[in-house]
């Protein structure tokens, strides 16, 4: 089924219909923990997307060599290697961002988005298809992470990307930037995405009938 999709369809479905965070609920852990500001969400999203792309390509190139039994461990080692690389690049390029993301940069190694795509897609498909899937999923993840970060920053500080959006007298909802707020905002965003998807599919059925 997935193999018959064209490259463009793969790209689009990752962005909207199969958005990794909001529709498939993959990569939950960093989405809850580090999205206190839109910039943090964007940074984490980009780092994860890069590791996802590299891991998918390597897994897809090695797909005939990987044994069935030890496959999962092989995926873990490959993504850990690229996560180490991402951590080094981030430390040198954006030291402040790297410090505020903390242990969640090395934790990219066990991000279930990356492991799921390696297992469910890259291990069965050609490198070109794996790249299209990884780019689509990666972009979808970046958008969802930035959105989550923007919502939490807006509620918790009245700013988005450090720019003041709400009036200066706005009383910030501190809860939004605390751990409990992360769980709440992500839960509600997934709920909203579910509602939109249900309406969309309802409309489609109505048209065909």
């Amino acid at each position: 089924m997935a193999e018959k999709k064209s490259m463009g369809a793969l790209l689009i479905s990752g962005l909207l219909k199969e958005n990794p965070l909001l529709r498939l609920a993959l990569g939950l852990c960093p989405a809850l923990a580090v999205t206190t500001t839109a910039f943090n969400g964007l940074g984490m999203g980009i780092a994860t997307a890069c590791v996802l792309l590299c891991t998918s390509v390597v897994v897809s190139l090695l797909r005939d060599l990987l044994p069935e039994k030890g496959r999962f461990v092989a995926f873990l080692v490959i993504s850990a290697a690229f996560a180490t690389l991402a951590q080094m690049v981030l430390k040198g390029w954006q030291p402040a961002l790297c410090a505020s993301l903390g242990i969640f940069v090395p934790l990219i190694a066990v991000n279930c988005l990356i492991l799921n795509r390696a297992d469910a897609f890259a291990a069965q498909n050609s490198p070109a298809a794996a790249i299209a899937d990884a780019v689509g999923m990666g972009l979808g993840y970046i958008v969802a992470m930035t959105l989550t970060g923007a919502v939490r920053e807006l509620l918790g500080a009245g700013t988005v990307f450090g720019q003041r959006v709400l009036a200066a007298g706005y009383q910030p909802v501190l809860l939004a930037v605390m751990p409990a707020g992360g769980l709440l905002v992500v839960g509600l965003l997934i709920g909203i995405a579910n509602a939109i998807a249900a309406r969309h599919s309802g409309k489609k059925e109505g048209e065909s009938a």
Binding site: L184, G187, L188, I190, G191, A195
Partner: peptide
């Protein structure tokens, strides 16, 4: 509510 069934309500209760 239907859209919150499954994971969303779990996350909200975790919150």
């Amino acid at each position: 509510p239907a859209p919150l069934k499954g994971l969303p309500i779990s996350l909200i209760s975790a919150s």
